[in-house]
């Protein structure tokens, strides 16, 4: 698909424009501390990112993996997720600002989905967990739109030439979760074990779900 198809038109929502981004008091205070400490040479933002990344799996409820596991095992839930992801996700008790207005895009044997986002403040971390550090880099976003297959290969995901790749750009109103394909040989696994196979990267499309042998 072309990059034109991939990008949403951000100008559609001018009336919402003023509410696109917001920092809570605490978010702003932490940014202020980071700015001062960086200016004073006491911290290096890259080092902070690196520490935060080690806690990638320790931030937020990260309930996206359970959403995926349920969709894999319950066709009715998958259908609901397809038609109204916001309501389907909320039905599991997962609500909150970052989880609102979600759309689920399903990987199939024919199509792989990849999500880009600038992390202004709309990344749905409550559902997906912390974003990877490289997600913040503007080149990732632009390259993912222009050459998604090449970007995926850099992440070690080589897809057959015949598989289509769709790129989704989060908007202020709509955030995406990729429902990866269910790995083979997982028929006997329960929800919990299935959820263990669902990585953050697989829910943004830069990875696939882990193979069955990785279940705990």
């Amino acid at each position: 698909m072309t990059s034109e198809d991939a990008m949403h038109n951000h100008d559609d929502h001018d009336d919402e424009h003023d509410h696109d981004n917001h920092f809570s008091d605490m978010q702003a205070r932490v940014k202020a501390l980071e700015t001062i400490l960086t200016q004073k040479g006491l911290i290096d933002p890259a080092a902070i990112d690196a520490i935060v990344e080690t806690y990638e799996t320790k931030v937020g409820p990260r309930n996206g993996a359970r959403v995926v596991a349920k969709a894999w095992s319950e066709p009715d839930f998958a259908e609901w997720l397809r038609s109204d992801a916001t309501a389907a996700i909320a039905s599991l008790g997962y609500t909150g600002r970052q989880g609102e207005h979600m759309r689920a895009v399903f990987n199939t044997p024919e199509t792989h989905n990849l999500v880009v986002c600038t992390l202004c403040s709309c990344y749905p971390w409550a559902v997906l967990g912390l974003p990877p550090v490289w997600y913040k880099a503007p080149p990732y976003r632009s390259r993912a739109v222009i050459d998604p297959r090449g970007v995926l290969e850099e992440f070690g995901v080589t897809l057959p030439e015949t598989k289509k790749i769709r790129v989704w750009d989060s908007t202020a109103e709509l955030r995406y979760i990729v429902i990866p394909e269910r790995p083979a040989g997982t028929e006997d696994l329960d929800h919990e074990a299935l959820a263990d196979l669902v990585t953050r990267d697989s829910m943004i499309g830069t990875g696939l779900a882990n193979p069955a042998g990785d279940a705990r």
């Binding site: 951000h10 978010q27 205070r29 940014k31």
Partner: peptide, 17 residues
């Protein structure tokens, strides 16, 4: 802190804050 809050409000979606 206030400056960061104004910066966030003034940043349109799709641009880094």
């Amino acid at each position: 802190t206030q400056s960061w809050q104004r910066a966030a409000e003034a940043t349109p979606h799709g641009k880094p804050i």
